[in-house]
Design a protein around this nucleic acid. Structure first.
Lengths: 242, 242
DNA sequence: GAGTGGTCTAGACCACCCT
DNA sequence: GGGTGGTCTAGACCACTCA
């Protein structure tokens, strides 16, 4: 006799997590907004409140939800200070963190170069939005960013719309496009500044710079952003906790 | 009337977590060993099994315990592949990760320099164990480490004992001294190699190097290690996930 | 005071691992 | 078969927030 294909089991709370994730992805509750209470969700999905709680705990640990006692559970927003520095790890060596100002250099739609295609799993014909900018902390240009954005989400994002509020790119991606940046993988190395890079960062060619290469992925592991950041680290450092 | 000082409340499961932590710190169960079952711990502490479970979940999330279904809960060991790369984030750009070999350059007990004193919250008279070494990946010297170790834990650690098995420092710290390295804070920057550094890493002076400064802390946030690693990143990169 | 999340319990059943 | 952790439930009480 042929053995029947083994059914795929999955814990209930994982299925509830998926269900909430889909609702989140569908935009059922806005970023920063309140989701239904545990008891409401339990009724909606036909499970006990404790099971919903477990699912919400997981999503909270993943950084998608925030719970506030006495108030409710909120969809996380990239505007919050809590998330403000998740994707910007460069801190001044001394003194409080300063919000950088963005100076746009390029912003246009291009066909993706080969290495960008590879990083973002694109077809040869796909176009991406390319942005080059300098982040200025106080008086000093500190970061030179090359950014490539893939996917349908960025079809509606035109150079014009970016021009005037580019200092808070992530915040805008979210509010304008509903995109969720969930996970990022970074590769960090030290490189010498080229003449062009040195010019944009007001340093001498050959000076050491921190190169941060990042691929950001969204809901189901789909890559949507490749970013190469070159950082002056004379008065700033990249902070990390293990 | 004087209002009485408000009592400090703490959830039961947090107290149980502390209790388990103290047993761990006292060495009641060896690294890699099995701790008592949930029901046993529940009896011992006089709480329900679910409360013990919550405490163990927290400690598992903190990376101190590992649970294996059907077998039990284990004290984590730094030997495990799971923890092998927690403190060594440098990976080759291509190909599988290679276990580096350590070449000792200096190893002696010294009075801590001022900056090391600050980082490790030491008194002026305290001595520290100072180690300088080069980590060689395959054929290439890739990392130049300066390491300062503070505290009673390292009194028994002599240069002689380090000389021959220094390639797996952390593993040895633990097995030999029972020290637990729990948390680390890193500051990363790009610097130019000095002549001396260049000589040790077989590169040209002035070449860019990745400087990773790390302070490692143990059980109650007490700093025990300061490390400055200089890394060639021509064929390797520092990997990070956000 | 009503509603929310936070904690705690007791008990049930499952899947996994060993012997 | 007996022990372990993994999941799920139902119900209780607490602390916080807001009207």
């Amino acid at each position: 006799m042929n053995a029947p294909a083994p059914p795929r089991f999955q814990p209930l709370y994982q299925q509830i997590r998926e269900a909430i994730l889909h609702a989140l992805q569908a935009g059922e509750w806005p970023p920063g907004g309140l989701i239904p209470s545990e008891t409401e969700l339990a009724q909606r999905f036909g499970v006990s409140q404790g099971t919903v709680r477990k699912a919400v705990e997981v999503l909270t640990a993943e950084g998608l939800l925030v719970r506030r006692q006495g108030k409710g559970t909120y969809v996380v927003s990239h505007d919050e200070s809590q998330a403000q520095f998740r994707f910007l790890r460069l801190r001044p060596d001394e003194g409080p963190a300063v919000q950088p100002v963005s100076r746009m250099i390029h912003c246009r739609r291009v066909r993706a170069p080969a290495d960008v295609q590879r990083a973002l799993s694109l077809q040869g014909s796909d176009t991406v939005l390319y942005i080059q900018r300098v982040l200025v902390f106080g008086e000093d240009p500190v970061i030179l960013d090359d950014i490539w954005l893939a996917g349908e989400e960025f079809r509606r994002l035109t150079p014009q719309r970016l021009a005037h509020q580019s200092s808070r790119l992530y915040s805008m991606f979210e509010t304008e496009l509903g995109t969720k940046m969930l996970h990022a993988r970074e590769r960090i190395r030290a490189v010498a500044a080229t003449a062009e890079q040195a010019g944009l960062l007001a340093i001498e060619p050959g000076q050491p710079l921190l190169l941060v290469e990042r691929v950001t992925t969204t809901f189901h592991g789909r890559p949507v952003e490749l970013r190469r950041g070159l950082c002056r680290t004379t008065h700033h450092h990249y902070a990390n906790e293990l």
